[in-house]
């Protein structure tokens, strides 16, 4: 890609032929805002820091052992993955279906519907959390009452409340409401970017709509879906706002995600633990993403 002539000349270090100049600002910023906290966390994770006595003592490997044997942490781990999986799946299925519906040719007032539809994306999660706390109130919440009426859940086990059996469903509703539009939007863009030839060829071959979707469109959407899934995974892994606002991790710790667990430790001034959680999550995220990118052969 780069011209071969330039390589021979060895341009000076500050020349715009060198990538560093271009990348410097972003590298510096990301370094300060992500590598520095990371190093900070690594240091803290080996110590016990008590702000009151200003004690700062070597405490390895106690923070690590404490965390990895903490039942609440292991539960939050499980919750994060169960919730993340369910949310991802629901959003993908709904997102693709909705994108297909919006991709049809004869939709009148398309931009109005699209705008209304993607509006949830721009409601800050804090506010949608509060809003759904109202809408999912066990007693008068409209969402709860619709679900009672449809016999999806029972009045004794409301979305947020009871023994906490349905709390993840409650959070799922918010997450799906808020982020399905994001998925659908990107899939929609993918559908619009799709080459016409294979589809036309398939139509000529007499493929029905179902075959067209499974055999032509879905494979062509692979890259798009890979990107969308990646971004949703990253966000779901650090799910925090809804949990903090709607449930505080309850009832009975049933909705505590890893991020919220870390937040609880932060409040308890167990910063050693927070740091360890941070490191664990980051390592985990990198592993998942890498594996994922290999698996789907996503290339940026």
């Amino acid at each position: 890609m780069t011209e071969s002539g330039a390589r021979k000349r060895r341009p000076p270090f500050w020349s715009s032929e060198r990538p560093w100049i271009w990348l410097l600002p972003i590298i510096v910023l990301l370094f300060v805002y992500s590598v520095y906290p990371f190093i900070f966390n690594v240091v803290i994770s080996f110590h016990r820091f008590d702000p009151m006595t200003k004690a700062f003592r070597w405490n390895f490997p106690n923070n690590w052992i404490d965390l990895l044997t903490n039942a609440d942490f292991l539960k939050s781990f499980r919750t994060t993955f169960i919730f993340g999986g369910a949310a991802l799946l629901t959003e993908l299925v709904l997102g693709i279906a909705i994108a297909l519906a919006f991709d049809r040719n004869q939709v009148k007032l398309r931009s109005l519907w699209q705008s209304l539809f993607i509006l949830p994306m721009v409601v800050p999660p804090v506010i949608s959390g509060l809003m759904f706390r109202f809408l999912q109130n066990a007693d008068y919440g409209i969402v709860s009452n619709i679900l009672y009426a449809l016999n999806v859940i029972d009045r004794t086990e409301p979305l947020i409340g009871g023994t906490g059996r349905n709390v993840l469903l409650g959070l799922l509703i918010v997450d799906v409401w808020q982020w399905t539009p994001f998925v659908a939007l990107i899939v929609l863009a993918g559908l619009k970017a799709m080459p016409h030839e294979p589809i036309e060829a398939a139509i000529v071959d007499g493929a029905n709509r179902w075959q067209l979707f499974w055999e032509i469109k879905l494979p062509l959407l692979r890259n798009v879906l890979a990107v969308v899934i990646l971004f949703r995974i990253v966000d779901l892994l650090r799910l925090f706002d809804y949990v903090a606002i709607m449930t505080s991790g309850g009832p009975g710790g049933n909705s505590e995600t890893i991020s919220h667990f870390a937040y609880r430790m932060h409040k308890s001034i167990e910063w050693g633990m927070v740091s360890v959680v941070g490191i664990v999550v980051l390592i985990l995220a990198i592993i998942i993403t890498n594996a994922y990118m290999r698996l789907f052969k996503v290339k940026f």
């Binding site: 109130n137 066990a138 007693d139 009045r155 004794t156 086990e157 409301p158 979305l159 947020i160 409340g161 009871g162 023994t163 906490g164 709390v167 449930t247 505080s248 309850g250 009832p251 009975g252």
Partner: peptide, 12 residues
Amino acid sequence: MDPGVTGWDWGG
């Protein structure tokens, strides 16, 4: 109490 009570803080 209402079953929703396990989701209510003092506001609820």
